[in-house]
Amino acid sequence: MFIDPMLLSTADNPFSHSNYIFEPKIDGHRLMFSQTNGRIRLYTRHETECTQQYPELLAPFDHDILLDGEVACTGPDGVDFEEVMIRFKAKKDHRIKELTATSPVTYVVFDILQYKGEDLRKLPLIQRKEILAGISMPNQHFGVIPFVEGAGEALFNQMVNRKLEGMVGKRKNSLYVSRRSPAWQKVINWSYADVFITGYRKEEFGWLAAVPDESGRLRPAGIVEYATQATRKEFYSKSRALVTGEDKKFVYLSPAIRGRVKFRNWFKSGMLRTPVLTELIE
């Protein structure tokens, strides 16, 4: 069985509140674990089945159950988003078997939606947490997310110090609804960098970003796909005099415009992950 997941709103800043619990935000992908009549199926938030990709999670519970959580891989530097994406994209049995040995996943459970045939979504979150805490996990690849009550800012500071993705604040009395809700709010631990804008897409919005390498020469660092309308207008007014060439997809610019971006982290390839332009720099 699949149920559309409850999605996070975004909080501008870390916050604390006695009516909330706060959890670490795990940098993996959303996973719904469904066991119906003993049969296990795994789904992404978009209902894409990924049961085949994670054989270490095909361990049955004592009773039928529907869980919501995040599947993640850990590496030498902590949680590794790129590794879990490699796991998710693997389709051939021999490759899946190989990756299960070299890059095992952990399913971090943060909610329980059904158990023993009972729909739990109308129960307050804190009560669902109590039910979840009383259930034995079927193997070492399952874990339950820890949480603190009230002290969101202190938890967020821990996430920053440990270079983790951020935190999620959830109202203790929130019911589980299959939509984006202000009752659940994420606060991202953004990184920041200054980039040169060296071109832009002709069709959909996107600016080519570059950063200096060790020798001082500019190298590509990805595509900025998020910027305010006011910033876009300012950019295009400045860019007209800087055009150096074009091809079918891009217009190229002399690297005279700089911008500050916030982003999740650096990919191993040296690209920015999910860069958002915060301002143009004079």
Rank of each mutant, 00 (worst) to 15 (best):
F142H: 06
F147M: 07
I131Y: 02
K186L: 02
K89Y: 01
S181V: 09
Q127C: 05
T198N: 03
F88C: 04
G199Y: 03
P76D: 12
V108G: 00
K129I: 07
G75R: 08
K170N: 03
T102M: 04
Q127T: 14
A101I: 13
T198Q: 03
D119E: 12
R95M: 13
R180W: 02
H63T: 11
M159V: 07
A133Q: 13
G134F: 01
G75S: 14
G78E: 08
V195G: 06
D119R: 11
A59F: 04
Y200R: 10
V148E: 05
L120M: 12
K163C: 06
S178E: 09
G134K: 11
A151T: 10
K202R: 11
H63R: 13
I131P: 06
L57M: 03
V148W: 00
A59Q: 13
G199T: 05
N161C: 09
A133P: 01
W184Q: 05
D93S: 15
G143S: 15
K97G: 11
I112V: 15
K172G: 05
F61L: 12
F81Y: 06
R87I: 08
S174W: 00
K122N: 15
D93G: 08
R171Y: 00
V108R: 04
K122I: 10
A59E: 12
D93F: 10
P76G: 05
V105D: 00
E118D: 11
K172Q: 10
F147L: 09
Y176D: 08
K92C: 06
M137L: 15
A133N: 14
L155H: 05
A151S: 07
W184D: 03
V168M: 02
G169Y: 02
E56Q: 12
L175P: 08
R121K: 15
A183T: 09
H63N: 14
A154F: 01
K116M: 11
E149A: 10
Q140R: 14
F156G: 06
E204G: 05
K122T: 14
V195T: 04
D64C: 11
Y200L: 03
P76I: 14
